[in-house]
Simulated scan of single mutants.
Amino acid sequence: MAEPELGVEETIVWRVQRGMRIFAIGAIVVFALLIMQVAMVWGYYATIGILLVLGVLFQVYWQLLRPKLTATEAGVDVVSDWKPVHLEWADIRRVEIGDKGLTLIRADGSAVHSKVPHAAKPNPDKSPTEQALAADYLTRRANWARKGTGIKPTYEAPKA
Rank of each mutant, 00 (worst) to 15 (best):
M1W: 10
P4F: 02
E5F: 15
E5P: 00
L6E: 10
G7T: 08
G7Q: 10
E10C: 11
I12T: 11
I12C: 07
I12V: 15
V13F: 14
V13H: 11
V16K: 13
Q17Y: 12
Q17A: 15
Q17R: 14
Q17W: 12
R18D: 04
R18W: 13
G19F: 11
M20V: 15
M20N: 15
R21M: 14
I22N: 10
A24G: 07
V29G: 11
V29N: 09
F31E: 13
L33H: 06
L34A: 13
L34N: 13
I35M: 14
M36T: 13
M36I: 14
M36N: 13
M36D: 14
Q37P: 00
V38Y: 03
V41K: 14
V41M: 12
G43R: 05
G43A: 02
I48C: 03
G49D: 07
I50H: 05
I50R: 04
I50N: 03
I50S: 05
I50V: 09
V53T: 08
V53Y: 05
V53I: 10
L54E: 01
L54R: 01
G55T: 05
V56C: 02
L57R: 07
Q59K: 12
Q59E: 12
V60I: 15
Y61A: 04
Q63H: 12
L64A: 13
R66F: 00
L69K: 04
T70A: 12
T70M: 14
A71R: 01
A74W: 03
G75V: 07
V76T: 01
D77G: 02
V78Q: 00
D81Y: 12
W82Q: 11
K83V: 05
H86M: 08
L87F: 00
E88Y: 10
W89R: 08
W89T: 03
A90K: 06
V95L: 02
V95K: 01
E96S: 02
I97K: 06
G98F: 12
K100C: 04
L102I: 09
L102M: 09
L104Q: 00
G109K: 07
S110W: 07
S110T: 13
S110D: 06
V112K: 03
H113N: 07
S114R: 03
V116K: 01
P117F: 04
A119L: 07
A119Y: 01
A120R: 06
K121N: 09
P122F: 06
K126G: 12
P128N: 06
T129E: 06
T129F: 01
Q131D: 06
A134C: 14
A134N: 09
A134I: 11
A135E: 07
D136E: 15
D136F: 14
Y137Q: 04
L138I: 04
T139M: 07
R140C: 08
R141A: 07
R141C: 03
R141D: 01
R141H: 10
A142C: 04
N143M: 13
N143D: 15
R146Y: 03
G148L: 08
G148N: 05
G148S: 06
G148C: 04
T149K: 11
I151F: 08
T154A: 09
Y155D: 09
E156D: 11
A157C: 09
P158Q: 11
A160V: 09
A160G: 15
